[in-house]
Design a protein around this nucleic acid. Structure first.
Lengths: 195, 195
DNA sequence: TAATTATTTCTATATATATCGAATTGTATT
DNA sequence: AATACAATTCGATATATATAGAAATAATTA
């Protein structure tokens, strides 16, 4: 769970293409751009279902929509497809995934050493790297996009360790969470947008 | 459902890679070959689960097993991965899928015209191409690999039309089914192994 | 503004499959 | 042979998601 960027991006790409109807959509759009209606009738699917599939393909950049009248013309982004294919071909794409797995395994081991069966933190690691693992673990208890009062934050942190102050301070210090002014408002930092 | 060879092969390939743990396995095997046990512990998964994933990857030729002692060494078939990537890049792979969809749509239309709501055949098309669509539709009522007596065959065909003789004769004539000697033994022909 | 049409979102359901634990198979060693 | 160990298969469960239908949204036309 350390750095999933490579992993999850590739995974989402493959998942997008791992459905018979979505693959068909890509095949059709390779020839001509279509409206949702056209696709639905070609595939013998409901329009809502077709729309859903298109949304999934769009999410990974495989298709794009161009509005025209009250139609949307969906078309294939061939460059995305090619870029992904190139990426899989590249020598270092797979080893990178392997590195991420090593990091995951490391995290698991640290977690095992510093938490009990109930997931509570038994001790704070002195080593900075391990301490960050613990912090990332704790951060997962918060929902992305939600704002918490300091009281709520403490309540959640208490499930992990009685020293909520240390946890709270370091979550902010290591920029896993952010705090409004001096006040009581906390939220998760989206790690993806961070360098 | 006319000629799914391109479709289904690509689909199975993407499905094989559309799982986080299988993608991780590929990543690990890109560096080193492993036993099931090793992979299971690296991924923090049960051995049976790991085995299942490896079987799926092997099915599309992405990994291969080499027996050694009582271990199996699984390794990545990088050439399969490259071949698939090349294929996606090739200009005609996607249009081919589109053709298959057209064929599917054609089949559906024929079926609609010559069957009723309950799936019974209302008339036999005069046109050869359409007649074959009907035959392929009927053939789906039989299980691959199972041997049927003539009586059983007739029983099944009766669900589609009272003229079981015509259906039976043409299923064999168009090589969708095969018959033992002059006798009462029928079975589906595996279309994949046919030219 | 009302009405029409295309698309999306929401809700519910059905199907596929990832997962585990137990039993089984297969291979090598004693 | 008998035993030990790795791997697979089987049975059951839980989760993800493909699907359809209804309601909501957006955009155009009357």
């Amino acid at each position: 769970m350390t750095d999933q960027s490579n992993q999850s991006e590739l995974l989402e790409f493959f998942k997008a293409l791992a459905d018979a109807n979505r693959l068909k959509i890509v095949g059709i759009l390779a020839r001509q751009s279509c409206t949702v209606e056209e696709l639905a009738s070609l595939l013998d699917l409901g329009e809502s279902t077709t729309s859903h599939h298109l949304a999934r393909l769009a999410k990974v950049g495989l298709v794009s929509a161009r509005p025209d009248g009250h139609y949307y013309h969906y078309s294939l982004q061939t460059d995305t497809l090619q870029a992904m294919a190139q990426r899989v071909l590249s020598a270092d794409a797979l080893p990178k995934i392997a590195q991420e797995i090593d990091a995951d395994a490391y995290d698991r081991k640290v977690l095992q050493n510093f938490t009990d069966e109930e997931g509570r933190i038994t001790a704070f690691p002195a080593q900075d790297k391990k301490f960050q693992v613990i912090l990332r673990y704790v951060a997962k208890a918060f929902e992305p996009g939600v704002r918490y009062t300091e009281k709520q934050v403490n309540e959640i942190l208490l499930r992990f360790n009685k020293d909520t102050a240390t946890l709270r301070r370091n979550l902010v210090g290591y920029r896993l969470m952010e705090r409004e002014g001096g006040g009581g408002c906390y939220w998760l930092v989206d790690q993806k947008t961070e360098a």
